[in-house]
């Protein structure tokens, strides 16, 4: 953790394929936001989006890092993974489109709802991907 009077920075590693641990980082982020007395509605939207994104990294990538930046105006969370990437982001954003494995579906995910749900919950969302290298997703929540 890095911290000054105006901003805080945290990082969490995410292990691809480790479903038992999926959600650990989102849980830590939820605890942190609660400690900072962030509005409960914003916390819920943040952690739902965060958890969906974390599950995506576990489900699709080899490894990833979550970067959290907080200041008095916003929360920005960047999910940067090393993985196969997304060939067609527009298609991936369509509700119901999914390339998830049967293992992911057995967990109750992989219905093609993750990215659309992240977009609904975030105030801002940016996504970029390079096939064969990985995907970067950034969500921003406005605090004011």
């Amino acid at each position: 953790m890095n911290q000054d009077s105006q901003s805080m920075h945290f990082e969490y590693n995410v292990e691809g394929g480790n479903f038992s641990r999926a959600g650990y980082a989102s849980s830590e982020i939820k605890k942190l936001l609660k400690q900072l007395n962030v509005d409960m509605g914003i916390i819920k939207r943040t952690v739902v989006g965060c958890y969906e994104a974390e599950v995506n990294v576990v489900a699709h990538a080899y490894t990833g890092t979550i970067y959290v930046d907080l200041n008095t105006e916003s929360i920005t969370i960047r999910f940067q993974d090393e993985g196969p990437g997304i060939p067609d982001i527009d298609q991936a954003m369509v509700e119901g489109f999914s390339t998830a494995s049967s293992k992911v579906r057995e967990m109750g995910f992989g219905a093609g709802m993750g990215l659309p749900n992240i977009k609904k919950n975030a105030d801002q969302m940016k996504i970029s991907s390079i096939v064969g290298k990985g995907t970067t997703l950034e969500i921003t929540m406005l605090l004011q």
Partner: peptide, 25 residues
């Protein structure tokens, strides 16, 4: 629901969840 993605779209608080799955997620 057995679809956790569906559960994550709920806006209501203090909901009772009934599921036919059993896993950490």
């Amino acid at each position: 629901s057995d679809l956790m993605s569906d559960v994550l779209t709920l806006k209501s608080d203090h909901v009772l969840l009934i599921t036919g799955l059993s896993n950490m997620q």
